[in-house]
């Protein structure tokens, strides 16, 4: 089947199998391997991308369901060589341990700050409740979200 969508600002068109998951379309068809597969059943959030502005588990969406939509993956955040403030904050604070969950956390953070630019700690925890870090590095992740939120507010 033919799918057309916008991924990280670029229009893409491909012929795909109807049973292809959005996650596989992103990783295999488009070779954007920043998005990770953890559990494959919507529990861990490693595959989080933005679909029409909303954070979703790309392992639970058929690629064909995203036909005509706008998708942002972790590769879409940096501006050329310059990292996005959220990515910078994660690096600076040391919110990355093994790094496998990081793209998902960054996308969940992006969705959270888009809707809630000045989140309380409770709102951050709620915004990230769909993401698991098996290294359990949650406190640094919280610090990174707070830092990113502050910088993004200041730069506006």
């Amino acid at each position: 089947m033919r799918i057309q969508c916008t991924v990280n600002g670029k229009s893409v068109e491909r012929d795909i199998s109807p049973d292809l998951r959005l996650l596989d379309f992103i990783r295999e068809t488009l070779q954007l391997t920043g998005t990770k597969e953890g559990c494959g059943e919507g529990e861990c959030g490693a595959c989080t991308v933005l679909l029409d502005g909303k954070a979703v588990n790309s392992c639970l969406v058929l690629a064909m369901q995203a036909d005509g939509s706008v998708i942002i993956t972790v590769e879409g955040l940096a501006d050329g060589q310059a990292l996005h403030p959220i990515q910078e904050a994660y690096v600076e604070v040391g919110a990355v341990q093994c790094g496998f969950c990081t793209p998902g956390f960054i996308m969940a953070t992006y969705a959270l700050l888009q809707d809630t630019p000045d989140p309380s700690e409770e709102e951050i925890l709620a915004g990230l409740e769909g993401n698991l870090c098996r290294c359990t590095g949650y406190s640094k992740i919280l610090d990174a979200v707070k830092l990113a939120a502050r910088r993004m507010r200041e730069s506006r």
Partner: peptide, 9 residues
């Protein structure tokens, strides 16, 4: 229900 990602879908 679920998480933000699940509730969006």
């Amino acid at each position: 229900v679920g998480s933000p990602q699940i509730r969006n879908l």
